[in-house]
Design a binder for these strands. Structure first.
Lengths: 339, 339
DNA sequence: TTGAAAGCGGTACCAA
DNA sequence: TTGGTACCGCTTTCAA
């Protein structure tokens, strides 16, 4: 159905090779021939078959992206940023959602490898580095985003999570909170880093970390609202309730806020709240939410740059030195912590 | 680097054809040979090169998805639902974002055609049907979602937009609003259908449609909050302001709500509000937002079914009868209209 | 400046 | 049950 080089060659009494050269702007073709070919290409609405090209060149011009949840605005932002940059270079984005399931993620990665993607971008939910070691053996370039792994010297683009925690909890201290709680996420680097930052903020100000005030939840990016609601609800039953809460992400903070308001308490007067991620609608919530911005758009952009960089140089060289792009988080203060 | 059929054949002293047959569970291979081959495949971590397979079979096992904006939760939902179903059938999803730009959309479609996707799924932002006519000529199966075109008998999955408008505006009438405004979106079928439903609701109850109370905005899915804010702000300057507003989507409603609250008015007492889309966080807004649910998850699911159906039957047959899946919207009442 | 031949990694068809 | 051969649409190399 679709036109092929062969069709054009036949029509113009030329060889397939000549047409192919015109297609790729090869210099040694006469202007006249070039024009004839281009004209015919346009007439036939010719599009080169990228699968065929990939087969012979070994480059698919595909970037594989695996995220835990497409609905999460953070990953949506990243996907958008990535796709915008890649498009301009002729790359396509193949998208997979792991649903925060390590096994599913593995399957999706396998599928992407079968497609011979040129580079992988993964916000991984794995609990070991084995998968990535294997990628290295197979010389498949990859970039981790958002979540990283201890002891894996991989390309990484994300935010400094300890700084996120320090900033969020530090802000609560600065506005006068005395009993600061943390509602955290699953046991991945982001949640652990933010927890660590929270701890450092408290101890740095001579405040002890009370275990009853720290709740690490299974679901963070997935069903954050519910997680946050439950955790907060439990904390409000404590003999002495917290007067400030730093949450792993914005959905968690929204759920927590709901629990506070339902209990007849005020935000920020009784409980001040800080989230992470600075989602687009933070301003429109029950109480506009103070949040630590994770620079999601910048992450998409920088990831694209890094990924393209990996493709530009020879594989061995690219593999040699893994780059880490650590973005600085920024606090966006809104009503939920203004007192 | 990656193992090929040829490698396995050499290792086991078999022909490539035999290995290929094992790969595809062809019946006429002895159990013994099959086992040997499978064993070796596992050892080498063999993955068939899908580009090569696509080239010879003419099927890429790729579905192309084009949406106006990945960050919009509605399209995120759709992408997620689609990907979940397709994965199980071995399909990959190639994702493109058109940024609500018809020309960009056209480019992205071209790129997807070059990849020889098996089927296209498009939430189109085109202003003519020309593109889709061409797809039909080229016998490329496609499914429109969310937005459709007058006079184009295409496969479509979406919600009944007139019903959306009827439901949203009708609800405002039912709760006693007398002066009902509409903040609409760009000139695409969704916005026009909802406007039409709004009109029918009003005239059906003997209420005239005041042009000052209807504002159709350029940006709807893109920068909805700002659009809504501006439109509402303008309407509040009218000599007699509306006491109910039906909005094209939830972001628009959020912006509108902000304008109302900033003006010192109350929601829903002074102005009741209804949005569309029923975004996940509608419950957590300044005033929890009544919204007409668009069944985004169902849309993803049904689209996947329809798309797979197109691939199952011979092309001619599939092209013959375009299917329309029109989902019924549902009203979700929250505080913003409860009075 | 143009083109013939080989081959990328698979699958289809038919013969052994 | 197994395999030889041709070929999918394109690029690469080298010769004309």
């Amino acid at each position: 159905m679709a036109a092929r080089l062969k069709d054009i060659a036949r029509d113009l009494n030329l060889s397939v090779v000549t047409i192919s050269k015109v297609l790729r702007d090869h210099p040694d073709i006469s202007q006249e021939t070039r024009d004839r070919v281009l004209k015919r290409m346009k007439e036939l609405n010719y599009r080169p078959n990228l699968a065929a090209r990939a087969l012979v060149t070994g480059r698919s011009f595909i970037v594989g992206l695996v995220v835990p949840d497409l609905v999460h605005p953070f990953f949506g932002q990243v996907a958008k940023g990535l796709s915008n940059v890649l498009r301009k270079q002729g790359y396509s984005l193949v998208l997979s959602s792991s649903e925060d399931d390590p096994e599913l993620e593995q399957q999706e990665l396998d599928q992407l490898l079968a497609r011979r993607v040129d580079v992988l971008v993964v916000a991984s939910t794995q609990n070991s580095v084995e998968t990535f070691r294997r990628l290295e053996e197979q010389r498949v370039p990859y970039v981790l985003i958002d979540r990283k792994f201890e002891g894996l010297a991989a390309n990484f683009v994300g935010v400094d999570d300890a700084a996120v925690g320090l900033l969020g909890a530090g802000h609560l201290i600065a506005v006068g909170c005395k009993r600061i709680a943390h509602i955290g996420g699953p046991m991945v680097s982001t949640a652990l880093g933010r927890l660590e930052g929270y701890r450092r903020a408290l101890t740095g100000h001579g405040i002890g970390v009370e275990s009853a005030y720290v709740s690490m939840r299974e679901h963070g990016d997935d069903a954050g609202e519910e997680s946050g609601y439950k955790a907060m609800h439990a904390m409000l039953q404590l003999p002495v309730r917290p007067d400030g809460v730093f949450c792993y992400n914005d959905p968690t903070a929204m759920g927590a806020m709901k629990a506070v308001l339902e209990a007849g308490l005020r935000v920020p007067e009784d409980v001040a709240m800080v989230g992470c991620g600075n989602v687009a609608y933070a301003d429109y919530l029950r109480v506009p939410l103070t949040s630590v911005d994770q620079q999601s758009a910048a992450i998409g952009d920088r990831t694209a740059q890094l990924a393209l960089g990996l493709l530009a140089r020879p594989k061995a060289e690219a593999a040699a030195k893994a780059k880490t792009v650590l973005l600085e988080p920024q606090l966006v203060v809104r009503a939920s912590s203004r007192r």
